[in-house]
């Protein structure tokens, strides 16, 4: 059993890595202008060349794919952390309104900068998103102390999300500017238009948060048995909870700042990954969720831009189609488990 378990872990990681490589190659080659895999390889490893194919790959598809990879991973890990924090299997940055809160703050800062005409560094956007995410997280925390049932927590999160979205729409409507189109596109969730500078920034932030999350995997595993037991095992509950909030907000904020709100990835991927690995061990599931989220978002982004090409879907639309059924499946599974005990 011990043996078959570690075999399962190796198998899981192999599958995810292979999928990731495959999807990455696909998203570099498939698109409005078809580029062969050989050409893609030449561009990737062959150094400078000025033709249009290599420029498309280097300046458009590569950063976009990397954004999907990094942000998809970040979003899934944020979801896993939130599920652990609230001890609620259908918690996630999107349903809890955290993404919407981040979006509201980013939209405000964007509109303000458009009006005042100052240059927006992506760091400022991340900071704004982080502030918005934390604000929503704190609101949710106030609710979570008062509601007993896990569904009520989710409902309050969804409501907060609606309020934030309404405020965002309001702000967007009254700040008319040519650039608002751009803002509108972003507010529906998209990886398009990512620059290499953005990729660098999101990679740094995500790497930082990922290291933090992996280092928290030991207390998270204790916390899975409940707060009282975690405390008895030596977890310092208060700092642990604060770190968990900060990390999950930072990850969710990073995603929202660069790609807008993306739905259901945070809930669906950790569950799919737990099923694949037949485990909930944070030390395995945190890196596996990252890989799973990368695969999921790369795949969804590929579909979003190719399905009705040249018309592009928002990536959130595609993630919802695949993610929402997982949420329903999780709830049904929980119900089944409850009825058997």
């Amino acid at each position: 059993m011990e043996h078959s378990r570690s075999a399962r872990t190796v198998f899981g990681f192999c599958i995810l890595i292979l999928l990731l490589i495959g999807l990455l190659l696909l998203s570099l080659t498939v698109g409005s202008s078809r580029i062969s895999a050989a050409e893609a390889f030449r561009t990737l490893f062959g150094g400078e060349s000025g033709d249009s194919a290599s420029r498309i790959i280097r300046d458009i598809r590569m950063p976009r794919s990397l954004a999907a990879l990094i942000l998809g991973g970040a979003l899934s890990v944020a979801g896993f952390l939130l599920q652990c924090f609230f001890r609620n299997p259908i918690a996630g940055p999107f349903v809890l309104g955290i993404s919407s809160g981040a979006k509201l703050c980013v939209a405000m800062v964007m509109i303000l900068s458009l009006q005042q005409g100052f240059f927006l560094h992506s760091g400022i956007l991340v900071l704004a998103a982080f502030a918005g995410a934390l604000l929503c997280m704190l609101t949710i925390l106030v609710f979570s102390g008062k509601v007993q049932h896990m569904a009520q927590l989710i409902i309050s999160g969804v409501m907060i999300g609606y309020i934030c979205n309404a405020l965002t729409d309001f702000a967007v409507t009254f700040a008319d500017d040519a650039n608002i189109v751009n803002l509108h596109n972003w507010s529906r969730g998209s990886f398009s238009g990512t620059s290499w500078a953005d990729v660098r920034d999101m990679a740094i932030i995500t790497a930082f948060a990922m290291i933090g999350s992996v280092l928290l995997s030991k207390p998270i595993s204790a916390y899975q048995l409940g707060e009282s037991y975690a405390k008895n095992m030596g977890v310092r509950i208060k700092p642990f909870r604060i770190l968990l909030i900060l990390l999950s907000s930072l990850l969710a904020a990073c995603v929202t700042a660069f790609a807008g709100p993306i739905s259901f990835v945070g809930i669906a991927v950790p569950h799919l990954v737990k099923g694949l690995f037949r485990s909930a061990k944070p030390l395995i599931i945190i890196p596996a969720s990252f890989l799973g989220g990368s695969v999921f978002c790369l795949g969804c982004d590929l579909l979003a831009r190719t399905l009705f090409s040249p018309q592009e879907l928002s990536v959130s639309t595609v993630t919802a189609v695949f993610g929402a059924p997982v949420v329903i499946a999780v709830m049904l599974r929980r119900e089944k488990e409850r009825s058997r005990t």
Binding site: L215, K218, M233, V235, L283
Partner: peptide, 16 residues
């Protein structure tokens, strides 16, 4: 896994 959680105070940084 549940019983092994008892080893928490004795394991290292990553809980191996």
């Amino acid at each position: 896994d549940v019983a092994a959680a008892g080893r928490y105070p004795y394991t290292g940084l990553l809980g191996m």
